[in-house]
């Protein structure tokens, strides 16, 4: 049963939707944590420390998340591969698509950016531990908070992050309503609402995440970065 489901086009898409939805929920939680940076180093580091308290459980969550991501990616890969083959001979004139939204058109682009981003993100924050060298701001060791501030003080670090967050937002404006469609929740009554929600979630997540590096880069790292500490 599951084998047939997973080998069917609809089954694969629903797996993509399901894992996508899980990741959206993760992102919302992650965002809530990130926004603690506005409360200052103590609150932020306390949050990070609280997370660590979960210990093994945190690793279960992390592995779950990695699995979600991996499944999402693999199934998309399988679907896209079939889609590429399905056309056969290509059209000479590009298919007219004025009814396709930009976010829809750019799903592969935003998805690829995200993939690249996630790898760098894990290297930068998850697998890099804060130490004196990378988390000291103006002579104060500020733990994870310091690591973040230092990272975003670097214009490349911030820019890459902001670009990636726009990609996430873009991805989600299509994705959230797409999840609803794929699970079969499309109805004249509430679909307009779902579509709006999709846009709000996309913009909200992009803006929320991007606020951190922008804040750090322009305010925290400006003329008086040491006031932060």
């Amino acid at each position: 049963m599951l084998k047939k489901y997973l080998s069917s086009s609809i089954g694969k898409k629903q797996i993509v939707a399901l894992t996508g939805l899980a990741m959206v929920l993760f992102l919302l939680a992650h965002l809530a944590g990130n926004l603690l940076i506005f409360k200052g180093a103590d609150a932020y580091n306390a949050y990070a420390a609280a997370l660590k308290e979960f210990g093994a459980l945190l690793w279960v969550a992390r592995l779950g998340l990695i699995a979600m991501f991996f499944i999402h990616f693999v199934f998309i890969f399988l679907l896209v591969k079939q889609n590429r083959q399905a056309r056969g001979v290509q059209y000479s004139e590009p298919l007219h698509a004025n009814t396709r939204s930009l976010s829809t058109k750019l799903m592969p682009v935003s998805g690829t950016i995200l993939l690249a981003y996630i790898i760098t993100h894990l290297m930068d924050f998850t697998f890099t531990h804060s130490n004196i060298a990378n988390a000291t701001v103006c002579g104060d060791y500020l733990g994870l908070y310091g690591l973040v501030v230092n990272h975003f003080s670097n214009p490349f670090g911030s820019l890459w992050y902001v670009i990636a967050m726009f990609a996430v937002g873009f991805h989600l404006t299509h994705a959230v309503q797409s999840v609803a469609q794929t699970f079969g929740w499309n109805n004249s009554k509430y679909t307009p609402f779902i579509k709006k929600t999709s846009v709000v979630v996309g913009i909200g997540i992009a803006a929320g995440f991007a606020a951190v590096p922008i804040y750090v880069f322009f305010l925290a790292c400006g003329t008086s970065s040491c006031t932060l500490g």
Binding site: L79, Q82, A86, R100, Q177, S178
Partner: peptide, 14 residues
């Protein structure tokens, strides 16, 4: 439908 080799829906509504 899948056997025939059609592509998969990506909710683009074209």
């Amino acid at each position: 439908m899948d056997t025939e080799g059609f592509g998969n829906c990506s909710n683009e509504y074209q």
